[in-house]
């Protein structure tokens, strides 16, 4: 026993770096504030008109003035994103399981799905408007489509990532397919699934905005379209800022759930 130390004994040096941690947060924050200030100064000094490139203060003022509208459109887009994302989870994960377990599906549906993946989803959006009309549904479908592939591919590869020797071990105990799935395969796939979910959630916001661009009367994408066409550029920037924040917050929300459900996942 003396020759070995548990790996946890090695983490001591990592605990000795609190100043580095503080700096890693402080550094980007200071840089960001600096860049915003520089933006303000440069725009004022150069005299670029506000409808072309507004100053940060003008954007802030517009956001305060239009906060009710912004909040409303924010919720619409958030709803489309979450609904489409949830739908893609509910469909892709069981489908991935079916594909992995059925050689028939693996040889028929899966290649077709992967081929469809190459189709640009932006190009489908106008057709969806044609078929399902305005409103939230076509946007939810676009979000669903862009989230679908990363999740199904990640889940399918995760389910097949069980080491061969572990499969042998389980087989030697005559485990049932259900036991193998519940105790081994699905937990093994979990970190992979979350890789797919994190890719999907960033696509989801883009998908919703694309859907809104093509035809809608609500959502932050619609707001950007309308306000730029009316030269209310500060408002468009405000909507863009909210989209960015939505995207970042959703990404970290998925990562938070991952840490709860998959505490053993390798950290990046």
């Amino acid at each position: 026993m003396t020759a070995e130390l548990p790996a946890s004994a090695r983490t001591e040096d990592e605990d000795l770096e609190p100043s580095t941690t503080l700096f890693t947060y402080l550094g980007p924050a200071v840089t960001l504030i600096g860049l915003v200030a520089l933006w303000e100064v440069l725009v004022r000094w150069s005299g670029i008109p506000g409808w072309l490139l507004p100053t940060p203060t003008a954007i802030g003022e517009a956001m305060a003035e239009w906060r009710n509208e912004l909040g409303w459109h924010f919720l619409i887009t958030l709803y489309e994103v979450l609904a489409g994302f949830a739908l893609s989870i509910v469909v892709s994960i069981p489908l991935a399981v079916a594909v992995v377990y059925s050689p028939f599906l693996q040889n028929t549906i899966y290649p077709i799905l992967l081929a469809l993946q190459s189709m640009p989803k932006v190009a489908i959006a106008p057709l969806l408007v044609l078929w399902i009309g305005f409103g939230a549904l076509p946007k939810i479908v676009v979000v669903f489509l862009v989230c679908f592939f990363p999740i199904i591919v990640a889940t399918a590869s995760g389910l097949t990532a069980v080491p061969a020797s572990l499969i042998d071990l389980i087989r030697s105990l005559s485990a049932t397919p259900l036991q193998t799935f519940v105790k081994i395969r699905f937990p093994t796939a979990m970190p992979h699934i979350f890789v797919g979910l994190k890719i999907a959630i960033t696509f989801a916001v883009i998908g919703a905005v694309i859907g809104e661009f093509v035809g809608s009367d609500a959502g932050l994408g619609y707001l950007i379209l309308i306000s730029t066409s009316q030269s209310r550029t500060p408002l468009a920037f405000g909507a863009l800022l909210l989209l960015t924040i939505m995207s970042i917050v959703l990404y970290y929300a998925v990562e938070f759930v991952e840490r709860l459900l998959v505490p053993w996942a390798p950290k990046n």
């Binding site: 080491p163 071990l169 937990p187």
Partner: peptide, 10 residues
């Protein structure tokens, strides 16, 4: 017992 321990990390 195999060469790799193949324990379940969770």
């Amino acid at each position: 017992v195999f060469q790799e321990p193949v324990l379940l990390p969770w």
